[in-house]
């Protein structure tokens, strides 16, 4: 088959909603796009453990501590599912992790913001996991099989993340004046960065057409963002709190909420590495990797020793 035929066959499969599997022929750009997107997604899960990990030892009760531990452990699992999906495209785990540590690969900018109070943990669960879920639900239908399957597994685990966050805020919203203030403050700080998670406006997304055609993604950044806004405006009412946007208004023509302008300058600054915690996050990842080196080496040495023993015994 000529390359042209292969490409046509490939696109036909996608149009017929047949998943693309690791051994199937695929255009190089499709492979690269998936490697980049899946690995960034994996890194986000892993780096995302850091802001929450910050509060595990300081959670206000044993119950909250156990919940937070379980959530953070889930995120580690999500990272693993995604790294594995990425490996099926022909890149090694080590290469992927090197790319993160060298700064070549990115992760979601949201994790470059600090978690300053306990209420931030609730806000992260509600808003950050909430925004991630919108995207991940869409990705359960992405065209690359291993990525879609990882997403199905992840989505099953995510809903508890968002619920525990909202519930935690709900408790604060009914608490003392200080707790209420803390709750509102956390929402104020996390709202805009959460909206930025959906990425630049569609009008700036020059290349997303190809990704839609290949069904890597199925909704645009703005569609997902709008869906998220509409959902949160209703939910925040249950908390008796407000979202920090004076322009939020129901639009009867569009049947959606209008909302204010995102500070795109801040967005690009954080992407470029100038967010409040960029350096700290990467440093923490590198340190964990380096300090874990002896464990990896010891486990490998132990495995070799056991293998040799078994071989000697068999001889």
């Amino acid at each position: 088959m000529s390359v042209h035929d292969l490409e046509k066959h490939f696109q036909d499969k996608i149009d017929q909603e047949t998943k693309i599997e690791p051994l199937d022929w695929m255009p190089e750009a499709y492979r690269k796009t998936n490697i980049r997107q899946i690995s960034q997604h994996a890194h986000s899960e892993i780096v995302g453990m850091l802001p929450e990990g910050n509060w595990i030892s300081r959670a206000p009760s044993l119950k909250r501590k156990a919940i937070l531990l379980a959530k953070v452990q889930d995120e580690a699992g999500h990272g693993l599912y995604l790294y594995s999906a990425c490996e099926t495209l022909g890149i090694t785990r080590e290469e992927t992790i090197n790319d993160l540590h060298s700064g070549r690969a990115k992760y979601s900018s949201i994790f470059n913001y600090p978690t300053l109070t306990w209420a931030d943990i609730g806000a992260v669960g509600w808003l950050v996991d909430g925004a991630a879920i919108m995207n991940q639900v869409m990705l359960t239908r992405t065209s690359y099989g291993p990525y879609a399957r990882a997403m199905v597994r992840i989505c099953k685990e995510e809903s508890f993340h968002q619920r525990q966050g909202f519930e935690s805020l709900l408790v604060l919203s009914k608490g003392s004046p200080e707790q209420k203030a803390m709750c509102q403050d956390a929402i104020n700080r996390w709202w805009w960065p959460a909206l930025m998670m959906f990425g630049p406006r569609d009008t700036e997304s020059t290349n997303s057409d190809q990704s839609m055609k290949w069904k890597i993604k199925r909704k645009t950044n703005d569609e997902l963002r709008q869906q998220f806004v509409d959902m949160c405006v209703e939910q925040v009412k249950l908390l008796g709190m407000t979202l920090p946007d004076p322009h939020l208004k129901w639009n009867t023509d569009r049947n959606h909420y209008d909302f204010g302008e995102i500070d795109w300058n801040e967005f690009w600054q954080v992407v470029k590495g100038n967010g409040p915690c960029n350096k700290e996050r990467l440093q923490a990842r590198k340190q964990a990797w380096e300090e874990g080196a002896w464990v990896r080496e010891a486990a490998a040495a132990h495995a070799t020793k056991k293998q040799k023993r078994a071989a000697a015994y068999a001889a």
């Binding site: 750009a29 980049r36 986000s44 959906f198 990425g199 630049p200 997304s205 950044n221």
Partner: peptide, 18 residues
Amino acid sequence: TSIRRFFYGDIPGQESAG
């Protein structure tokens, strides 16, 4: 086709992973 930017969770950059 050069694909390098602007997907959710996909942060634009000249150098892509992979």
